[in-house]
């Protein structure tokens, strides 16, 4: 278990690239939560939560959505 089976050099080589234009999407969830103007307000309240709290908690979903999307879009064929 501790030592993975070595694969052929060709198999490793196909993965030797990491560049994709989709990676730029990752900037969205990095920049948006750092702009207080978007969320620094009490109204509207959702389920009693001021906007400051519900919107920032919602940004967690934004982060998950973007990282998942980028992962799926940049995953190479044949990879897990």
């Amino acid at each position: 278990m501790a030592t993975p089976e070595p694969k052929t050099p060709a198999a490793a080589k196909t993965r030797a690239k990491d560049k994709s234009p989709w990676n730029w999407l990752l900037f969205v969830p990095v920049v948006v939560p750092l702009i207080p103007a978007f969320y620094n307000s009490d109204s509207p309240r959702v389920l009693g939560f001021p906007r400051f709290y519900w919107l920032q908690l919602a940004y967690i979903l934004l982060g998950v959505a973007v990282t998942t999307l980028v992962y799926q879009l940049t995953k190479r064929r044949g990879d897990r």
Partner: peptide, 12 residues
Amino acid sequence: VPYTVVIYPMVF
């Protein structure tokens, strides 16, 4: 919260 949101896309 913003701290632990921005971290993952940043270090992805």
